[in-house]
């Protein structure tokens, strides 16, 4: 056993234990740690954005353009900066409509850039991957591929809203919801695993980095 000599490890260990104290009961120490976490993460983000965005992408280019009397360069930086600043009008209820300008611009940009690759990734490639090609009755993977095809088609039936779920449509969509539930089961299992991993990570920190019990 070799206790850590780093003050930061001790602070982190103290905060970890105060957060876990919630498992017994809500208490002021837990709330203290929660507030420290929120404050620290916001502070970190502000520092990163200030040093890696505001200064290199706005401050320095504006200063350089001004010093060099490069007026087109100045406008090139100033216009997007001003548009971005319109976001702050959210704080003024009467002028809050001005915030819609940058939002509209961003929405337009994101829609434009995402439509084509989204169709290619989520539809073309996935549909092509589901089509049964080179079916070989003696190969197990071919039967898995068939099961996949049945799963996809029946699930699509479940999410088909233009037809009543009756007769063959009803039966197929019922099969579809079975596939969906099995997928949820797998996802649930994985999520439990993820949560346990987080606990293990913290306990490893306490036992290895702080107390030095673990090698």
């Amino acid at each position: 056993m070799q206790l850590s000599t780093s003050i930061w490890v001790w602070i982190a260990a103290f905060l970890t234990l105060t957060i876990y104290s919630f498992l017994y009961k809500d208490n002021p120490l837990y709330r203290f740690a929660e507030h420290v976490f929120v404050g620290a993460s916001v502070g970190w983000s502000i520092a990163i954005v200030w040093h890696m965005t505001a200064i290199p992408y706005i401050g320095i280019p504006l200063r350089d353009a001004f010093v060099q009397r490069n007026w087109p360069g100045l406008i090139y930086v100033a216009i997007p900066t001003l548009l971005g600043c319109l976001y702050f009008f959210r704080f003024f209820p009467k002028q809050s409509w001005l915030a819609r300008w940058p939002i509209a611009l961003m929405m337009g940009y994101y829609c434009g850039i995402s439509i084509s690759p989204s169709i290619e990734t989520n539809i073309f490639t996935q549909v092509q991957g589901t089509i049964l090609t080179g079916f070989n009755p003696t190969s197990l993977s071919s039967w898995w591929a068939l099961l996949l095809l049945i799963g996809v088609v029946s699930t699509l039936f479940y999410f088909f809203f233009s037809l009543k779920h009756e007769g063959i449509v009803g039966k197929t969509s019922r099969l579809g919801i079975w596939f969906v539930m099995i997928a949820f089961g797998a996802s649930f299992g994985y999520t439990v695993m993820a949560r346990v991993s987080l606990l293990i990570g913290r306990i490893q920190f306490l036992l290895h980095d702080w107390l030095g019990i673990l090698k």
């Binding site: 539809i123 549909v127 589901t130 089509i131 049964l132 090609t133 080179g134 079916f135 070989n136 095809l149 996809v152 088609v153 699509l156 039936f157 999410f159 088909f160 809203f161 233009s162």
Partner: peptide
């Protein structure tokens, strides 16, 4: 919702028909 239904229908037709065609081809 309606447009998506039609698109889903088209995809289902493509999936099933091309799969049948592929099996027949094999």
């Amino acid at each position: 919702i309606k447009a998506q239904d039609i698109e889903k229908g088209l995809l289902m037709i493509l999936l099933v028909s091309l799969s049948i065609l592929s099996i027949l081809n094999v």
